[in-house]
Simulated assay, not measured.
Amino acid sequence: MRFSVNTALTVALGLVASTDALKILMGNDDGFGSGNLRELYKLLLDAGHEVLVVAPARGQSGKGSTVIWAETANLTTPSQYDIIPAGAPAVGRDPNNDNIWYYDGTPAACTFVALDFVLPRYYPDWNQTPDLFVSGPNYGTNLGAFVMGLSGTVGATFAAVSRSIPGIATSASNKAVPYFNVTSASDPAVLAAKVSFEVVNEFIQNTPEGQEILPLGYGVNVNIPELVNNTMPPVVKTRITGNANTDVAVYNETTGLFTWDNIDPLAAGINAAYNGDISLPGETWVVAGGGVSVSLFTLDFTAPSNKYTELVFDKVENLTSGSPSMNTTVYSKRMVEERMRKRGAMLTGRDGGA
């Protein structure tokens, strides 16, 4: 049975085992050989959880929530760090760990492959329904509203949350490292994993028995500053807007190619605050000051109920007022159910009624 604990997060890191084993699905956008990913995987295992990884066969940063499937049934080139040879199946197990899987697709595609292929075929007792999805820790932070649509780490989490699975995306400030090169307890990958574990574990430990870790449609975005020792930085409740960046296209006259940079000064559009508690500090500002940011998001992108929204809807009032001349179709619940019946049931678990 889970019980409530109030971990002192500002003291030296101490890993607290959870009181109830969960089924945790993990992913990322840095690839299944990521040192950050593997270190957090080990900590969650050590805490007594059943953990499964399904992550990209190679780095897929910047893909956001895009779902791109493998175009061939077999890898045309070796996977990340040459762990899997060319010619191997596009989806499969790590040769040294049966519970770590790769797929040659985007992070969001990996989430769906995990839920609809790996789990029902190889882990039927999961019933396609992990208790929690954890992504990362990413190499580099994912801060602000713009990267919420750009980050594959967040995109993999979006995919899980869209399937009614509580999701936590974690991102750190360290550089990329293969998991087999992480050999020291002071390695930045180890430190990033420990901080990520502390935040994830706090959510788990403070969830009463019988309650989901997050409400339906909710996700968490965690960002970790540079870590210089084994001390937990302060953890701060944040909002996604506030000192956040967006991109500009930078053209290279020599190569004829574009790359990105952050716009300066900060764009007002990306920092317009409408939703949630606008008194919270922005995650970008908090991480820059050495704190760990914890922001909540939902998949409900509907504009807030305010005067701006009313004025925008007023612009299409003539179209939305239900004019008899409009050829509108009323979609009843029965019609939707009939269409789903004809398609055939695909899902089991939380969204499939099984």
Rank of each mutant, 00 (worst) to 15 (best):
G290K: 10
S173I: 02
V330M: 08
N28E: 02
A354R: 10
S61A: 11
M326R: 14
Y123T: 00
D261V: 00
A172Q: 06
D247L: 12
F117T: 13
N97K: 11
V53W: 03
R239F: 06
V195I: 13
W260G: 11
V330T: 14
W69S: 13
T329W: 11
N174R: 05
T111P: 05
A21Y: 08
V199I: 15
N245S: 14
F258T: 01
G35P: 09
G149M: 14
Q80M: 13
T246H: 07
K315C: 14
D314F: 07
I165M: 05
P234Y: 11
T141L: 08
A159M: 05
G352V: 00
T170Q: 00
A288H: 09
A345N: 13
A273L: 10
A189K: 10
E50L: 09
N127I: 06
D261W: 08
D314Q: 15
G256K: 07
S295I: 03
A185L: 12
G35C: 10
N6K: 14
T10K: 12
D187P: 08
E317P: 01
A114K: 04
A88R: 01
G291E: 09
G289Y: 00
P178Q: 08
A354V: 03
A172F: 03
N206V: 10
E253A: 14
G282Q: 00
V53P: 03
E50F: 09
N142A: 08
V53N: 09
G167Q: 07
V286R: 04
N262Y: 15
P78W: 02
Y81V: 04
S18E: 13
G242H: 03
T348M: 11
I24Y: 05
F158T: 04
F117C: 12
A249R: 13
K175P: 01
N96R: 15
G322M: 03
T328V: 11
R121N: 12
D277G: 11
V236L: 12
P188Y: 08
Y103K: 02
P95F: 02
D131W: 05
G62K: 10
V118I: 08
